[in-house]
């Protein structure tokens, strides 16, 4: 196994990245406002798809941070589930506030990522992927064993409140969309700024040649660890949002196929921009909705074919097809 397992995947969009770019805040803000505006216009089923795309994109945003260093985690469902169950525990304790829930999901997942990071930062390539998978499956096993948490049945989450305001049933979905958009806005800006910083830019050097990075006096382990914690935190935020959107948590959230779906969306998206995961997640949810709608007995054929097509014909991910990305 070479030291640069994901070089080609990340390199394609990397060449498309603008070298001198403006502040990311404005375009991301415009994006978030557009999504919220869309919430007024779209039918209910599309609103659900938007909500799903947003929490999924948060996890994929974290995967992209890792991918910049050439690392792919097949265990992101671990942090997704930790974030979701953090909301679950809060809900059981009667804490339903949106901000508290999101922060709890982020903190719980980030803290676990910090601890496991000391171990995982030593691993690269397929071993990094497999060890993260093993940890997620251990959590899955623990949750299945926990009868007080409903085992595989999981348990329901109380409706979310916003600083004391409890939206009625008709506006509940829209409130969740505003919440998800604001959280995604903050996450995207934070990641965009981080990737511009020294530590963020170090990632590509780590991916290309770790030994050179060490010779230059930078700590590869530290760089990888920081990215790992960021990815874990974002996955925890995604899980917290998912728990609120779905209204239910269960161990399948930690199962390896869920991690596989996140990586699927990452491949579909490409890593060229912080917008990419949002586009990729939206397309993924739409493909899924169309596939299950038109062939409920064989939707995986459609999903699998879409993935194959993306890998074969759009190696840089969907974002590389965007006119702006191509121009620069």
């Amino acid at each position: 196994m070479s030291a640069a397992p994901s070089a080609t995947l990340a390199a394609a969009p990397a060449s498309a990245r603008p070298t001198r770019s403006r502040s990311p805040v404005l375009p991301i803000t415009i994006g978030a406002v557009l999504v919220i505006a869309a919430g007024f216009a779209v039918p209910a089923w599309l609103l659900t798809i938007l909500l799903f795309a947003l929490f999924r994109a948060m996890v994929v945003l974290g995967l992209i941070v890792l991918l910049r260093a050439g690392l792919v985690s097949f265990g992101q469902a671990l942090y997704f589930a930790v974030g979701a169950y953090a909301v679950g525990f809060l809900s059981r304790a009667g804490v339903n506030d949106a901000l508290v829930r999101v922060l709890a999901g982020a903190l719980a997942a980030g803290a676990l990522g910090l601890v496991l990071g000391f171990l995982l930062r030593r691993y690269r390539g397929i071993f990094f992927a497999m060890l993260s998978l093993a940890f997620s499956m251990i959590l899955y096993g623990l949750l299945v064993k926990s009868e007080s948490l409903g085992s595989t049945d999981g348990f329901a989450i109380h409706a979310t409140t916003y600083a004391g305001y409890a939206p009625d049933r008709s506006s509940e979905r829209f409130a969740l969309l505003v919440l998800s958009s604001v959280v995604a806005w903050a996450g995207a800006i934070a990641v965009a700024l981080y990737l511009r910083g020294t530590l963020g830019r170090l990632a590509e050097a780590v991916r290309d040649n770790e030994i050179r990075v060490e010779y230059l006096g930078a700590s590869v382990a530290m760089a990888v660890h920081v990215k790992y914690v960021i990815a874990a935190t974002l996955a925890g935020v995604g899980g917290a949002l998912a728990a609120m959107v779905i209204g239910h948590v269960d161990p399948a959230m930690a199962y390896w196929t869920n991690s596989g779906e996140f990586v699927f969306v990452m491949i579909l998206s490409g890593s060229g921009s912080v917008f990419a995961p949002f586009l990729g997640a939206l397309v993924f949810e739409l493909i899924h909705a169309v596939a299950t709608h038109y062939s409920p007995g064989a939707w995986r054929i459609i999903l699998g074919s879409a993935l194959l097509a993306a890998i074969m014909f759009v190696p840089g991910g969907l974002w590389s097809l965007m006119p702006k990305a191509r121009r620069s």
């Binding site: 196994m1 995947l9 990586v263 699927f264 699998g304 074919s305 190696p315």
Partner: peptide
């Protein structure tokens, strides 16, 4: 897919898995 990175190939076989399941 020769020459593509490992993760893209793993994902391609994941796609084959999804298709073959159905």
């Amino acid at each position: 897919l020769h020459g593509r990175d490992e993760i893209a190939i793993v994902l391609a076989t994941f796609a084959v898995f999804l298709i073959l399941e159905d």
